[in-house]
Amino acid sequence: MSSPKNDNTVNTEAIREVLDTHRAKMKTALRVCAHCSLCAESCFLFHVHDGDPRYMPSHKFINSIGRLYKKKGRIDQEALEEISEIVWRRCVLCTRCYCPLGIDIPEMIALARNICRSQDVYFTWDQLEQEA
């Protein structure tokens, strides 16, 4: 993932602020998820990757925004990079996933992306070439 910063410091206070403004929604989403895995059926990336559980929408939001929420934003650069790996590489934000309990999973993933972006951690399309 791209990190144009020279230092690897993470402004945990800034992350905390973003988390605070969305606390109610995140809390509900994380509490309501019944791990029924029904959302998996609606994610094309889950199917494209032969049902790899790491592509389940629920897995993706729990391990991104869920992780940030549980850690109350106190997270280091490495963890942020891991999260960005999930929210950019394993989700295209097509907004097609369906949760029978009404969790807006794309919204949760977009929120995790926002937090990464706020720390200058994001995906750029020319990095694909560097990786090739």
Partner: peptide, 14 residues
Amino acid sequence: CGGCVSVCLAGGQK
């Protein structure tokens, strides 16, 4: 925008 303009390197975060 993190969508198309990010893909064509015209208007993403970078």
